[in-house]
Measured scan of single mutants.
Amino acid sequence: DETGKFLVLALYDYQEKSPREVTAKKGDILTLLNSTNKDWWKVEVNGRQGFVPAAYVKFL
Score class of each variant (00 low, 15 high):
1 D>C: 15
1 D>K: 10
1 D>P: 14
1 D>L: 14
2 E>S: 14
2 E>W: 13
2 E>V: 13
3 T>W: 11
3 T>G: 13
3 T>A: 12
3 T>C: 15
3 T>E: 12
4 G>Y: 12
4 G>T: 12
4 G>Q: 13
4 G>F: 14
4 G>I: 12
5 K>Q: 12
5 K>M: 12
6 F>G: 11
6 F>N: 10
7 L>T: 09
7 L>D: 02
7 L>Q: 11
7 L>H: 10
8 V>A: 06
8 V>P: 00
8 V>Q: 01
9 L>C: 13
9 L>N: 01
9 L>W: 06
10 A>D: 01
10 A>W: 06
10 A>Q: 07
10 A>V: 15
11 L>Y: 04
11 L>F: 05
12 Y>R: 12
12 Y>G: 04
12 Y>A: 10
12 Y>Q: 10
13 D>H: 05
13 D>E: 07
13 D>F: 08
13 D>T: 07
13 D>M: 06
13 D>N: 06
13 D>G: 06
15 Q>L: 13
15 Q>H: 14
15 Q>A: 12
15 Q>F: 15
16 E>L: 06
16 E>W: 06
17 K>W: 06
17 K>L: 08
18 S>P: 04
18 S>R: 08
18 S>D: 10
19 P>E: 11
19 P>T: 09
19 P>W: 13
20 R>G: 15
21 E>K: 04
21 E>W: 08
21 E>D: 05
21 E>M: 05
22 V>D: 03
22 V>W: 03
22 V>G: 03
22 V>Q: 06
23 T>A: 03
23 T>V: 03
23 T>P: 03
23 T>C: 08
24 A>G: 03
24 A>I: 15
24 A>E: 03
24 A>T: 15
25 K>W: 08
25 K>G: 04
25 K>Y: 10
25 K>E: 08
25 K>I: 08
25 K>M: 10
25 K>V: 09
26 K>V: 07
26 K>D: 02
26 K>A: 13
26 K>I: 08
26 K>H: 06
26 K>E: 08
26 K>F: 06
27 G>T: 02
27 G>H: 05
28 D>A: 08
28 D>C: 11
28 D>S: 07
29 I>M: 06
29 I>Y: 06
29 I>V: 11
29 I>N: 01
29 I>D: 01
30 L>S: 01
31 T>N: 08
31 T>E: 08
31 T>D: 02
32 L>H: 01
33 L>H: 02
33 L>Y: 01
33 L>A: 01
33 L>C: 10
33 L>K: 02
34 N>A: 08
34 N>L: 07
34 N>S: 12
35 S>T: 12
35 S>A: 14
35 S>G: 11
36 T>S: 14
36 T>C: 13
36 T>D: 14
37 N>V: 04
37 N>P: 03
37 N>D: 14
37 N>Y: 08
38 K>P: 14
38 K>D: 09
39 D>T: 13
39 D>H: 14
39 D>F: 15
39 D>L: 13
39 D>N: 12
39 D>M: 12
39 D>Q: 11
40 W>D: 00
40 W>I: 02
40 W>S: 00
40 W>H: 01
40 W>A: 00
40 W>K: 00
40 W>M: 04
40 W>R: 01
41 W>S: 00
41 W>K: 00
41 W>Q: 01
41 W>V: 08
42 K>R: 10
42 K>L: 15
42 K>S: 05
42 K>W: 15
42 K>N: 04
42 K>T: 07
43 V>D: 00
43 V>I: 05
43 V>E: 01
43 V>G: 02
44 E>D: 08
44 E>G: 03
45 V>R: 07
45 V>G: 03
45 V>C: 08
46 N>C: 10
46 N>G: 11
46 N>Y: 06
47 G>Y: 05
47 G>D: 06
47 G>R: 02
47 G>F: 06
48 R>K: 11
48 R>D: 03
48 R>Y: 06
48 R>S: 06
49 Q>P: 04
49 Q>M: 10
49 Q>C: 11
49 Q>K: 09
49 Q>R: 11
49 Q>T: 13
49 Q>H: 07
49 Q>F: 07
49 Q>S: 09
50 G>Q: 02
50 G>R: 00
51 F>M: 07
51 F>C: 12
51 F>G: 01
51 F>S: 01
51 F>I: 05
52 V>C: 07
52 V>E: 01
52 V>S: 02
53 P>R: 05
53 P>V: 09
53 P>Q: 04
53 P>A: 06
54 A>V: 07
54 A>F: 04
54 A>K: 06
54 A>W: 06
54 A>P: 04
55 A>M: 10
55 A>C: 14
55 A>Q: 11
55 A>Y: 09
55 A>L: 09
55 A>P: 06
56 Y>K: 04
56 Y>I: 15
56 Y>S: 11
56 Y>R: 01
57 V>T: 00
57 V>Q: 00
57 V>A: 00
57 V>N: 01
57 V>S: 00
57 V>K: 00
57 V>P: 01
58 K>H: 09
58 K>W: 09
58 K>R: 13
59 F>E: 09
59 F>S: 10
60 L>C: 12
60 L>E: 05
60 L>F: 11
60 L>I: 14
60 L>Y: 11
